[in-house]
Amino acid sequence: MHIATAAASPTDVHYRERLSPSLWVLLSAAVVAPMVALVFVPLDATVALVVGILVAASLMTVLLFASPLVIVSGGELRVGRAHIPVSQLGAPVGLVGAEARSARGPALPRSAWHLLRGGIDPVVRVPVTDPRDPVTEWVFSTRTPDRVVAAIERAQRAAEKTRHD
């Protein structure tokens, strides 16, 4: 789910994305239905079918709604439960392909904060400019790195403008 809007103030939502699981993960969760149903078949076939469907639907719902969000809003970048003011961030960089694989693996610094999701190839790297923060950069998955980068830059400009006013 993507909501990208051109916002006028730093409190408006610039970007929102749910890092939902891939279709393969959801299909794997759906396979739980027949397995659970087999357990309840000795009791009653109808009960087995209903319980299997309910368990699979519940599992897929949890997988979807427990997925982390990437939000740029209110002068803040939120990724999952972590958040940081955009004024403490440097220039964001969106990476895809081999660059993204490197950023998720061998080029991922020990001092970086990261939220990486399997099945989502692109990542965004954002340096942290606060010298007191032990985290040097944020690295996180996103399906649309160009939109995230643009939203962070818009939020940084809006925060800078309100700071000078």
Rank of each mutant, 00 (worst) to 15 (best):
G80N: 07
Q156W: 05
S67F: 09
R81F: 11
D146C: 00
L54K: 07
V86M: 02
M60W: 05
V126M: 01
A100R: 02
L116A: 05
S9F: 14
R117Q: 15
L89Y: 05
A45M: 12
H83G: 14
L59I: 12
A151G: 11
A7S: 15
E17N: 10
L116W: 04
L89P: 03
I152H: 00
D12E: 11
R157T: 12
G52E: 03
V123Q: 00
R117D: 08
L95A: 07
A48N: 02
S141C: 07
L59G: 02
H2V: 15
T11M: 09
P21M: 11
T5A: 15
A7L: 09
R18N: 03
V86T: 07
L59E: 05
I120V: 13
L116C: 08
W113A: 15
V31G: 15
E153R: 15
P34N: 11
G90I: 00
L95D: 04
P34W: 10
L108I: 02
A8S: 13
H14Y: 07
L116N: 01
G80K: 04
L77T: 06
V149W: 05
D121L: 09
A37D: 04
L49Q: 10
F140G: 03
A4W: 11
A155W: 03
T136W: 06
A33S: 12
V51K: 00
D44F: 07
V55L: 06
H83E: 15
V123F: 01
V149P: 01
H83W: 10
D12N: 11
P85S: 13
A57N: 06
V124D: 01
E76H: 07
S87Y: 03
